[in-house]
């Protein structure tokens, strides 16, 4: 029971932290919408063209926007010693990685998920595609959070080139983009494609605690 309470209060702490830095979340969303406007202005007013490439643009921007917050994934807790305190409070490094991944999903990805309907209106994406977009982004964003956790933990000791982490996430997110955009454009293959996406999620979700946990441990050892 105590352990469950610790998990609940871990998320209470994350909630407090994210609410005190709500401007960061807002900045991500603003970046996302401004980028959509820039795409619309650069493509021109042709509704048909925007509608055809809209889903691709949306997914690309969701990916770029969510990588913006990767730097903060572990960095603050690593620098101020909170990772050690969490570990001393009974959480293994792998478990910390799982908790932080869900925290990233809740406080960074869900605001994007909620802003998808507005983005669909701007990009002239048909209402009937909204369900497919929600389904693919719900799974895809969790995959991105897992990849983000691995790349951020690998980059904790890298003080010079943090963009490397974002580059890594973008390379590994190519299959996610392919299948996610595929789900929306080929509705008849929805079941098979969503299963593949779910399979990718299970793979990265299984790798994440081991890889991130080990990187966190190594970074703390060498800090």
């Amino acid at each position: 029971m105590n352990f469950l309470n610790k998990i609940i209060f871990f998320y209470y702490r994350e909630y407090k932290l994210n609410m005190s830095g709500a401007q960061d979340i807002l900045t991500n969303i603003i970046f996302f919408f401004i980028s959509i406007f820039i795409f619309i202005f650069s493509i021109g007013p042709d509704k048909q063209t925007i509608s055809i490439i809209g889903v691709g643009i949306l997914w690309t921007l969701l990916l770029l926007s969510s990588t913006l917050s990767l730097r903060k994934f572990y960095q603050d807790d690593f620098e101020n010693g909170n990772l050690i305190i969490m570990h001393l409070n009974g959480f293994s490094f792998g478990f910390i990685a799982i908790l932080k991944t869900f925290s990233h999903f809740i406080f960074v990805q869900i605001p994007f998920l909620l802003s998808i309907p507005i983005a669909c209106i701007l990009l002239n994406i048909a209402n009937d595609k909204l369900f497919y977009l929600f389904a693919s982004f719900s799974i895809g964003s969790l995959i991105l959070s897992c990849l983000g956790s691995i790349s951020s933990s690998m980059n904790l000791m890298n003080q010079r080139n943090f963009l490397l982490g974002s580059v890594m996430v973008m390379i590994f997110s190519v299959p996610i983009i392919i299948f996610s955009v595929g789900i929306i454009n080929m509705e008849e293959s929805f079941n098979s494609l969503i299963n593949i996406l779910f399979g990718i999620l299970l793979i990265v979700f299984a790798i994440n605690p081991w890889a991130s946990g080990l990187c966190l441990k190594l970074s703390l050892e060498n800090n």
């Binding site: 105590n2 932290l17 830095g21 101020n80 010693g81 305190i85």
Partner: peptide
């Protein structure tokens, strides 16, 4: 290093510690 959360108030930090450490 200081583990208190800089963005939060002393009261918030104390509350978080109290709950997190049961």
């Amino acid at each position: 290093t200081t583990s208190s959360l800089r963005k939060l108030t002393i009261k918030d930090n104390v509350n978080i510690w109290k709950k997190f450490f049961i």
